[in-house]
């Protein structure tokens, strides 16, 4: 009997952990979009106020921002600094595509971030400023979506995990 209770306990625990892990993806996405917005703010400051050349600005941003997304900036810095004739768009795109799997960001997020690379570094400071404002609006939108999904699906995953565990336990008993 005791063994049964222990096994049931373990089952319940592990299924709720799985549920929690699923829901974690949603909450991490919200966090990472925020991190991305913050680091883009940093990049904007480097560009607008310090006129730092883009590769250097990328490197600085990579050092400062959260580890989970710093790979994007680091990779872009590496590609640009190699001076192998990449355009910003190419370098940014390949960096995002390479690093996106290490984050919880979705394909939709990735497309928006890639689009940002098209006009990065092109034109004067005013152009850059409006460009950063635009990406910020887009990311805000994505964040709202992510929060909504977190509330909906995240909680659902959590509960589903526990309920599934309970169901298995009940069936087994």
């Amino acid at each position: 009997m005791q063994l049964k209770i222990v096994i049931c306990g373990i089952l319940l625990f592990s299924s709720s952990v799985v549920g929690y892990l699923f829901s974690l993806r949603y909450s991490l996405r919200v966090k990472q979009i925020s991190y991305l917005q913050n680091s883009l703010k940093g990049l904007e400051t480097e560009i607008l106020y310090y006129s730092t050349p883009l590769p250097m600005a990328m490197q600085k941003t990579a050092c400062r921002c959260n580890k989970s997304i710093s790979g994007i900036f680091d990779e872009t810095f590496r590609l640009l600094n190699s001076r192998n004739g990449y355009s910003i768009e190419e370098a940014w795109k390949s960096a995002v595509l390479k690093q996106i799997n290490n984050t919880s960001l979705t394909k939709e997020d990735a497309e928006i971030i890639i689009g940002f690379g098209k006009d990065l570094g092109v034109g004067d400071k005013e152009v850059q400023k409006s460009h950063f404002r635009f990406i910020n609006i887009l990311l805000d939108e994505q964040k709202n979506k992510a929060v909504y999904e977190q509330n909906k699906n995240g909680k659902m995953c959590n509960r589903l995990g526990i309920l599934l565990g309970l169901a298995i336990v009940i069936i087994l008993i």
Partner: peptide, 8 residues
Amino acid sequence: NYSAYALE
């Protein structure tokens, strides 16, 4: 150097 904004 990818930074037209720095060379206005």
